[in-house]
Design a protein around this nucleic acid. Structure first.
Length: 587
RNA sequence: GCCCUGGUAGCUCAGCUGGAUAGAGCAACCGCCUUCUAAGCGGUAGGUCAUAAGUUCGAAUCUUAUCCAGGGUGCCA
């Protein structure tokens, strides 16, 4: 990365000067912390190192310090100067040309890096109850999680994506009870959901179980016919199980449609049945972390970072949700993952201290757990915020995708930092116009592809209305790209047009920045940075396009500019594939 | 009460490991298509960075307090 290179070179110079006592009272690099930034005003340069903080050590004024260092920096291909306490670096043609040559040579993977150093990451996200369709919040976790997984892999992490199926507990029985009513209704029985406020909480009265009921009747006709208003335990289990499997199937199907691919679906029930939960409880007990009170079994989580103790086994003898979740995380750790990343809704934030406590109590390091708390999604319809009713008449993720498409939904879900509540404006996301950032980015890619297509296609000369031969044969152009040399771009800097030169310079810098963006997105677990970058890059390209005619009679210039267009297309397609949004070649 | 997030242009948001004149998109207004995609580009206008104090040569950025919004808060998941 250019930034790293500049920092390294600058530090080298400072270290040498300090040793030779050429920089005031500075004698070593100890305590020196510098970073490379981008000047607000591009006239200063492309990159800048602020050395004002060194004044403390050098006992020289910031400009004096900057001047002294600048005099000793000699970087081939860079123009170095200082203004105030800043050392500014402007790139010459060599490093710029090298950027394009590298992208053409390496293709989509040019920004691949090893920032993750092969760290084993278990990324858990979505983890919904199999009791109904996904709501749009699940969509946010799915989009963000899958994008994060992609960028982590691209940055050298080893990522395992897991979906924890919350298929245990009272909710599953509620599902079975509700399915029972829907089946009877389908069979013509006059029965409805309870209207009592308390009773209704044991049911899912949404319409979505009607298709499930139909399917049950189709596949289990005899069983369905025997159902009466009363429900035996055995029947409830059977219906619950059917409903659960059916919902899970629908969820899995939708995840695939939504470009979200899990390596495994981990069942909470399986965790109970395998005895792992009990083993984990026993383990905690052996370590003296549990005690009894009020007929329940408590975990001394307050001995760690939690503010109070938590119930592990309820007074009725059953486990809490937390208990299974502790066992689940214990299992993740035992599987050898030392970085556990969870995406949780903000409503789960109270769980973090207790889970940390549990991990420490079990003898692991709670620092291995990273919880990304996602703020909620508000749906905006015609300018009005919609409250999400959880149980009835909600807008599901499927509805949203059917309405606005996978690409737009994903982009909008990923585009904002996970820390801010997202307003999802349906009308805006749907609009195929300049109000929509997805199309802005995709359009840039399509535009680039179109130019490359035209370079090898016949054209019509509108002045004489005659057909012109393609500028390049396809094989010829492929060969030019394959054997591309940095010098082929020299002509870009020899041209007269200042506007074009400037936009070219900016575009190349933006392309190079992709490497730093990818690392930043991975390290900060912030896929939204990819969306911001995609928009920036698209903007730089549109600008370049407007002032720089690519296909012309000047073959040398055409080749140089085509290389730039190609590199842009490659990079746009790379960033879009990381967020799993399609990069259309035509629009 | 306590805990977590947020408060930056009319709207949606970047910027937040302190640094040069606070940015983008949309909305408003003015321009640019006989030539590679105008789903584009250029320009104008728009801000007490919630408020106050503090730390610093320097604060949107760090600290503290207050206000506002959303979420959570002892055996739901």
């Amino acid at each position: 990365m250019l930034k790293d290179y500049i920092l390294e070179q600058t530090l080298n110079v400072i270290e040498k000067m300090a040793k030779n006592k050429e920089l005031g009272e500075l004698t070593s690099l100890e305590g020196v912390e510098l970073s490379v930034g981008v000047p607000k005003n591009t006239e200063f340069g492309d990159f800048a190192v602020n050395v004002a903080s060194l004044s403390r050590y050098t006992k020289m004024s910031p400009p004096q310090t900057a001047e002294a260092i600048t005099k000793n920096i000699q970087l081939d291909g860079f123009e170095v100067n200082f203004v105030g306490g800043f050392i500014n670096f402007k790139l010459g043609k060599e490093p710029l040309n090298a950027v394009i040559a590298e992208i053409l040579k390496k293709g989509k993977d040019f920004a691949k890096n090893n920032a993750g150093e092969g760290k084993k990451v278990l990324l858990e996200y979505v983890s919904a109850n199999p009791t109904g369709p996904f709501h749009i919040g699940h969509g946010r976790w799915a989009a963000m999680g899958s994008a994060l997984a992609n960028v982590l892999k691209y940055s050298g992490y080893e990522v395992f994506q897991e979906f924890y199926i919350n298929d245990a507990g009272a909710q599953i029985k509620n599902l079975g009870r509700s399915l029972h009513i829907r089946i009877l209704q389908e069979l013509g029985v006059d029965i409805s959901f309870p209207t009592d406020e308390v009773e209704i909480k044991k049911y899912y009265p949404g319409d979505y179980l009607i298709p499930t009921a139909k399917k049950f009747i189709e596949t289990n006709a005899d069983y369905a016919k025997k159902l009466t208003r009363g429900l035996t335990d055995e029947q409830l289990d059977f219906l619950s199980d059917f409903g659960k499997k059916n919902m899970l199937e629908l969820q899995k199907k939708l995840l695939l449609e939504f470009e979200t691919y899990f390596d495994s679906f981990y069942s909470e029930t399986a965790l109970h049945e395998s005895g792992e939960v009990e083993k984990c409880v026993q383990n905690l007990k052996d370590k003296g972390m549990l005690y009894e009170q009020d007929g329940a079994l408590w975990f001394k989580s307050s001995a760690f970072a939690d503010d109070q103790d938590r119930v592990i086994k309820k007074s009725d003898g059953s486990n809490t949700y937390l208990t299974a979740d502790i066992a689940y995380h214990y299992d993740k750790l035992k599987r050898g993952y030392n970085t556990l990343i969870n995406i949780w809704g903000a409503d789960h934030h109270g769980y973090i201290p207790r889970m940390n406590a549990a991990i420490d109590a079990l003898g692991y390091d709670s620092k291995s757990l990273e919880v990304l708390l996602g703020q909620l999604v508000n749906l905006v319809i015609k300018g009005e915020q919609m409250r999400m009713g959880k149980r009835k008449n909600m807008i599901t993720l499927q509805d949203l995708i059917d309405d606005v498409g996978v690409d737009a939904t994903r982009f909008w879900m990923i585009m904002r930092s996970i820390d801010t509540a997202l307003d999802f404006d349906i009308e805006l996301a749907k609009s195929n116009s300049d109000e929509n950032p997805v199309f802005y980015v995709q359009y840039a890619h399509a535009r680039a592809c179109s130019i490359i297509r035209n370079a090898t296609s016949k054209r019509i000369d509108t002045q004489n209305n005659t057909e012109l031969e393609p500028i390049f044969a396809e094989a010829e152009l492929a060969k030019i790209f394959a054997e591309f040399k940095p010098e082929n771009l020299d002509i870009l800097w020899a041209q007269e047009d200042e506007k074009s030169k400037e936009s070219t310079h900016r575009l190349i810098l933006k392309l190079e920045e992709f490497k730093a963006i990818v690392v930043g997105a991975a390290k900060n677990r912030a896929p939204y940075l990819l969306c911001n970058y995609a928009q920036d890059l698209a903007g730089a390209f549109h600008q370049f396009y407007t002032v720089s005619r690519v296909l012309s009679d000047n073959k040398e210039l055409t080749i140089a500019r085509l290389a730039l267009v190609k590199a842009t297309a490659v990079t746009l397609s790379a960033v879009l594939s990381l967020i799993a949004v399609s990069a259309p070649e035509k629009m």
